[in-house]
Write a protein that binds this DNA or RNA. Structure first.
Length: 486
DNA sequence: ATGTTC
């Protein structure tokens, strides 16, 4: 049981919005928190800082562990945390990437304006809800895949969707890793994970996952917005979901295996939830290959859901989806481990960047960016709650100097799910949101109450701090119109 | 987040 005990953790101010836990005891390096005083007051309320300090015990971590402005307590490693770990001498840690491997977000543009939809919101939300399976254990767009097909999804990612008419080359060109993470070996995935995954490709899941039709409400940077193809009052579609039971099972399986095969390493760590394997050990490499399978599964999952949304829009607006301008802006991962090169202590070094509840935010110039964004900086997609809206940011140079090319991923909860259910009632919440022009449909009343806007921190403040730190700059704010969830 | 308490 984790108990807040933050009084024992001392923070030193380094610069505006940058705080440091100095390296002491078993800490190999310091830890840094990137937050305003307001956000820091929230971060101190749970075990985030202790977990952040614990991550600095991981062998090969350098030069410091990071907590982003939206950080909160997670499984072993904070959500909103980033660790760069040496690719030769370091470790890889499943709990530091998270259970929902490649939980992430994509944004689909349209050439429609709010007025084109106004009056048909209820019809649209109903059709989207009918077309996209939501909630736990409810089936999937792709039906039940054969074992062989699932393994192809794991190896090929969005290329599998392309071959079956669910995706276009343009979609692949506008996804992190072009929608295909190399080094994905399905023989490293357990039969239990495969059994779950076969039934779940093209399904939204539960919790904070959603599909949302949004209106571009505010533009902060006209030039970048133009380059991203965004303008005021335009309709866009945001999809927030992950690798479902497939990735969850992979994480569970490898937490057990890694803890068992690397007991001595585990004994040196302050929390067994940080269980880690040397990157070049069999368990470490098998985990990485299996994690990559889940990454590909999640991209394919979001692709199939976007495809279903395109078909619904086509029906409602009476045009083919390509005539509706329904192109993919970008798709970004929030929970991943990735081998990258970063300038650390004066040298270019190969590291496994662990991003858990953190978005890659590469600036212009990084070779990994697709041609569309290499001169601009990548789009960063940050989902908010169903009442308060979401953001598009742009990757900035300081992200490479401060946070290994990362920024925040969302608002973070301010209260427990249980507390939210006590405080709100689904029907009443839906009526109130409808008065504001927001149409919500969920499979479960409990989920709607749990996801009440008031249960979340202030995303505006998270994004403001990202912008001021120069790690991710505000481009546009998006507000919800239709939202479906589990 | 999650066949929602291994």
């Amino acid at each position: 049981m984790l108990r807040p005990s933050m009084s024992e953790i001392e923070l030193q101010r380094v610069a505006d919005y940058i705080w440091e836990i100095p390296a002491k005891g078993g800490m190999r390096v310091p830890a840094r928190v990137f937050a305003s005083e307001t956000l820091l007051a929230g971060i101190r309320q749970d075990a985030t800082l202790r977990q952040l300090r614990n991550t600095t015990y991981l062998p090969g971590i350098y030069p410091y562990a990071c907590a982003l402005p939206d950080a909160h307590q997670g499984y072993g490693f904070p959500v909103g945390g980033v660790a760069a770990i040496d690719a030769e001498d370091g470790v890889i840690s499943p709990g530091s990437i998270g259970f929902d491997i490649n939980c992430g977000v994509r944004l689909c543009r349209t050439n429609l304006k709010y007025d084109d939809l106004h009056g048909q919101e209820q019809q649209l939300v109903n059709q989207l809800f009918a077309a996209v399976p939501t909630g736990l254990g409810v089936g999937s767009i792709a039906g039940t895949l054969s074992a062989d097909e699932l393994d192809q999804v794991a190896r090929l990612g969005m290329r599998w969707a392309l071959e079956r008419g669910y995706a276009t080359e343009d979609d692949l060109a506008h996804c992190e890793d072009e929608g295909v993470r190399p080094g994905a070996d399905p023989t490293c995935v357990s039969p239990e994970a495969k059994a779950r995954g076969r039934k779940q490709l093209g399904s939204l899941g539960s919790g904070n996952h959603f599909l949302e039709v949004q209106r571009v409400a505010e533009i902060f940077d006209e030039q970048t917005a133009r380059q991203y193809g965004l303008q005021r009052d335009q309709l866009v579609i945001m999809i927030h979901c992950g690798s479902r039971g497939y990735g969850h099972q992979i994480c569970s399986d490898y937490l057990k295996r890694v803890a068992h095969e690397h007991r001595r390493l585990l004994a040196e760590l302050p929390d067994r939830e940080l269980a880690a394997a040397p990157v070049n050990s069999p368990a470490g490499q098998d985990y990485y290959q299996a994690m990559n399978c889940a990454i590909n599964f999640a991209w394919c999952n979001r692709q199939l859901i976007m495809h279903a949304a395109r078909e619904v829009f086509s029906t409602i607006f009476g045009k083919r989806w390509d005539r509706l301008g329904m192109t993919l802006l970008y798709d970004v991962a929030h929970n991943i481990g990735k081998r990258e090169t970063h300038l650390i202590a004066g040298a270019q070094r190969e590291v496994y960047v662990h991003r858990k509840g953190a978005t890659r935010a590469f600036p212009a110039g990084r070779a990994e960016l697709p041609p569309a964004y290499r001169q601009v900086g990548q789009p960063v997609l940050i989902p908010g709650s169903m009442g308060t809206g979401s953001y598009v940011l742009k990757g900035q140079a300081s992200s490479l100097e401060l946070t290994f090319g990362s920024t925040a991923h969302g608002a973070g909860r301010v209260m427990s799910r249980r507390q939210a259910k006590r405080q709100w009632q689904a029907d009443e919440l839906q009526r109130e949101l409808k008065r504001q022009g927001i149409y919500v449909r969920g499979r479960s009343k409990a989920t709607i109450a749990e996801e009440a806007p008031g249960a979340y921190k202030d995303l505006d403040e998270v994004v403001r701090v990202s912008d001021e730190l120069g790690i991710g700059a505000r481009v546009a704010k998006l507000v919800p119109i239709c939202n479906i969830k589990g």
